[in-house]
Design a protein around this nucleic acid. Structure first.
Lengths: 197, 197, 197, 197
DNA sequence: CATGAATGAGTTTTCATTCAT
DNA sequence: TATGAATGAAAACTCATTCAT
C-alpha cells in the first residue's frame, strides 16, 4: 500500500529527503500512480501522518474507562503500558519524529498533534489526577496545571532517545520505567504518603 | 561566518532541504568558497553541530562545582535554570532538532550527542543524587539508575514542545517548571519528606 | 460533445498544452472514452479543425449568389458582414489561431486552410472584382492578382488583433470597418469614381 | 547564445512544446546552465521576445525622419520596404507568431506588442497621413482613425500567410505588394485624384 | 459503450560539486 | 583566497496511452 511505503520512506529520509520514485518502488508501483491518488508529495505526507494518529489512544482510554481501583495502581499500570508501547510500536516513534521535524513546514500537522495527541493525553492524565486528589489519594497540588505534561514527558523522551541513539545506546527503558514510577508515586502521594505506611 | 549561516540554513530547512547556495548567500560569499573550507555538505553539517555542542554545560557545571548548601535547593535552582535556558536559547533547540532528525544518517553525531550532551547531563544529575542520598537528604532509591534521565526528561520535552507547537500553543513553561520542581522535591525526599522538616 | 470540449481546450492551451484528461473532464466523460472515438491526440485535433472549417462560407456565398445590384454596394455589404462576423464568432478566431500555430506541425491542416478557406475567399472576391471591371464599375487594375488578398487582409488582421490584445486594447473594429470600406471603394473606383455618380 | 537557441526552439515548437533540454542542446550547453541566467522557462521566453522587439523600427523611422518629397512616394517606398522586410526577416515572422499565440498566456507581451510595435507603426503611418492631408496630397478622410491599421494590415497578413503556408503556397508577396500600393495610392488620393482628370 | 487504474517516458527545475580565472 | 560559470544527476510532477473490468 502506498501509505505504508511512504511512511517507511519518510521515516528513513525525512520529508525533504524522501523520494517519490523510491516510495513508488517500495510500494511496487509506477511513480505516476502515486499522483493518481495524491496530488503531490505534501498531500501524501499529510495522509501518512493522519493515517497514524488515529489508533494511538484506544488502549489507554479503554483501560481507564472501566477502572475502579486505587489511582496509584492505575498510574503504575499506565506508566508500564506507555513504556511497553514505546518498545513495541516503531511506527509511532517514527510518526512522532516526523511530526516534530516537519511541524514548522506543516503547521496543520503540529495542530493535529496538539489537539489529537498531546491534549488528549494531558486530559486523560489530568482527569485521573483530579479524581485522585478528590479521593484523598493524591496531595492537593497533584491537580495543578503542568503536572500532566511533566508526568508524560519521561516516557516520550524515552521514545525519542530510543530513536536517536538506538536501543543499544539509549537510556534503558526498564530503568527509566522503574525510576519514573517510583518518582511519580512518591511525588503524588498525599501527606500521609507512601512512606507514611 | 559560514558556520553561523549554515546553522540558520540547516535549522530552517533540515539537512536535505538546506542548500549550499543559500548558505553562501546568507554568509555573503560565493558558493565556491564554502568548498575551500569544508569538503562538502556533510562535513559542513558536522562542523555546525560540533560548534554548538561545546558551550552548553559551562553554566551548570560552574554552579555545581562550588556548591555547598542543601541538594534540594540545588535541584530547584538547576530546574529553574534549565527552563530559563529553554526559553532563551533558540540555537540549542535547533541543534537538538537537527541531531534528532539526522542521527540516523550521521551516526557519529548521535554518538556526539550521547557522550557530550546526554551522558554529561546524566552524570551531573547522578552525582548530585548520590551525594544527596549519602547525606540523607534524599531517599535511598534516589540513586537508582534511570532516575537522572527521568528528572531531565520534562525539561527537554518542554523544549521540544516549544519547537513543535510554538510558544503560544505549547504547554506553559512556567506551569511545567513549577509542577516539575514540586514533583521532584517530593519524589526524592527522604522518609521524613521535605515538608516534614 | 467531445469535439466541442476539445476545441475549447485546444483554444485555451494550444496543441501541446492541451490535455486529454482536461478535455475529457470538459466533456464530462472518462479519459479512456476519447480513445474509443479518436485514435489519439493528433487525430482529435484534426477532427476539431475540420469540424470548424465547414460552415464559414455559407453566408457570404448565399449573399453573392443571387446578387444583381452594383458591385460597390456588394463590396460594402461584404465588408460589413466580415467585421460583424469577427466580433461575433469567437470559435472562428480560435480556429484561425490554432491553424496558424500548428500549421508547421500539421501540414495537411495548412493545406486545408489554404484550399478550403483562403482560396475560397480569394475566388469569391476575385469573381466580384472581375465582373465589376467587366461592367465598368471598377478600374481595370482591379482584376490584378494579389488584390483580393489585399482587400481581405484588414478584416483578418482585425480579427487577429482582437485575439492578441483583447477587445479593449485592440484597434477599434468600427473605425477599421469604416476606413476599410472608404479606402476600398475609392481605390477600386473606375475613372469617374464613386463620388462622380 | 541561449536566447538565439531558445528563439529557434520556441519558434519550432511553440511555448508549451518547447523543451529546455532541447534549447540547451541547441545552444551546446548543459540544461542547468540556462537556469543560471534565467529563472525559468517563462522568463526565458520573455527575454527572447524582448530581444527581438528592439530593432524593428530603426529602418522606417530613419527613412521618414529626413524625408522631404511627396507623401505618395513615401508611402510607396514604405510599402516596398515592408514587403521586402517580410521576405527577409525570418526572426520577425517567428516573433510575431509567438506573440500572437502566447499573448493570452503572457499578457505583458501582448502589451509589449501593442505599445512597442503596433502603436508605434500606427503613429508613424498616421503622421504621414495627417501631414499629407494638410498638404492637400491626400483626401480629407485619409486622416480618419482606423485607416493606418487598414493600410498596415495587408503587409502583416502577407507575413502571416507566409508563415502558415510556406513561401511556395502562400499568396505571392510581389502580387500583393503591387496591388497594395495601387489600391492605397488611389484610395488616398485627393479629390483631383485619379478620377478628377 | 464506458470507466479509471496503471504505466513510463518526458518535462521543468534544483543543487552539490568542479574548475578556470 | 575568492568567484561564478558550468555540469549532470536526480528530483517532482505531467500526461498520452493502454487495458482489465
Amino acid at each position: 500500500m502506498i501509505i505504508e511505503a511512504a511512511l517507511e520512506e519518510f521515516a528513513e529520509k525525512g520529508y525533504a529527503g524522501a523520494s517519490m520514485a523510491a516510495t513508488a518502488a517500495r510500494a511496487g508501483i509506477a511513480k505516476g500512480l502515486i499522483y493518481h491518488y495524491f496530488p503531490g508529495k505534501a498531500e501524501l505526507f499529510r495522509a501518512v501522518i493522519r493515517s497514524c494518529v488515529q489508533t494511538a489512544f484506544a488502549e489507554a482510554e479503554g483501560l481507564i474507562a472501566g477502572y475502579e481501583g486505587p489511582r496509584t495502581v492505575l498510574i503504575s499500570v499506565l506508566i508500564d503500558q506507555a513504556y511497553a508501547r514505546i518498545s513495541r510500536e516503531r511506527r509511532e516513534r517514527i510518526l512522532f519524529k516526523l511530526l516534530l521535524v516537519e511541524a514548522e513546514r506543516f503547521p496543520e500537522l503540529a495542530e493535529l498533534y496538539r489537539t489529537e495527541v498531546l491534549a488528549r493525553a494531558i486530559r486523560l492524565i489530568g482527569a485521573i489526577l483530579r479524581s485522585g486528589v478528590a479521593a484523598g489519594e493524591f496531595r492537593p497540588g497533584a491537580a495543578d496545571p503542568g503536572l500532566p505534561e511533566v508526568l508524560l514527558a519521561p516516557a516520550v523522551m524515552a521514545a525519542i532517545w530510543q530513536m536517536m541513539l538506538g536501543e543499544a545506546d539509549a537510556p534503558s527503558l526498564e530503568a527509566m520505567r522503574r525510576a519514573h514510577a517510583a518518582l511519580v508515586l512518591r511525588g503524588l502521594a498525599a501527606a500521609a504518603g507512601p512512606d507514611g505506611g
